[in-house]
């Protein structure tokens, strides 16, 4: 199997080198971590390599890049906190809507990217989308100030 993987890597290397890329193939271990929280699958993928950089991605219940970490402690803490928060969130009666909205947001990002890359999008449409996003952001900010904080071990990273 490793032989096929190496041959495949050689092919990718040739294709991307010809496109002008600088290709580095490194040995690493790819780890899939899956939790079952009361019937909801929460899973992550990250790789362990000699460069001590961990690229973490949550893949279920919705895909989201979780960032690059310089130490395994940071990586493990991030997953631990994430799981704690999901366990907490699972008790909410809007949990399913929360997952649906996140999936929809992920899909919307892809849709917008396709729209922009495949079509000549008018300036007004871009402005329109921007306004709608600003209003969503505003809802998030307003809600944050008006709601009670339910997780105290750590502050949010983005708001």
């Amino acid at each position: 199997m490793r032989r096929f993987m190496m041959a495949e890597a050689t092919k990718h290397d040739t294709v991307f080198s010809q496109l002008g890329a600088d290709v580095h193939v490194i040995n690493s271990l790819l780890c899939y971590i899956t939790f079952d929280i009361e019937g909801t699958e929460i899973s992550y993928v990250y790789n362990i390599n000699k460069k001590d950089k961990y690229f973490l991605q949550r893949i279920e219940p919705y895909p989201e890049p979780a960032g690059t970490f310089n130490s395994e402690d940071e990586l493990i803490d991030t997953i631990k906190i994430d799981i704690e928060q999901f366990k907490n969130a699972k008790n909410s009666n809007v949990f399913n809507d929360f997952v649906k909205i996140n999936k929809c947001l992920s899909e919307t990002i892809r849709n917008f990217e396709d729209l922009y890359l495949y079509y000549n999008v008018p300036h007004e449409t871009i402005d329109n989308i921007k306004d709608k996003l600003d209003s969503i952001q505003q809802i998030i900010k307003n809600t944050k100030t008006s709601c009670k904080k339910i997780y105290e071990k750590k502050d949010p990273d983005t708001i």
Binding site: R3, E8, T14
Partner: peptide
């Protein structure tokens, strides 16, 4: 032989 085809075949496919 195996090494040779593993190196030549991917380039041939490209």
């Amino acid at each position: 032989n195996v090494t040779t085809v593993l190196l030549i075949v991917p380039v041939t496919l490209v």
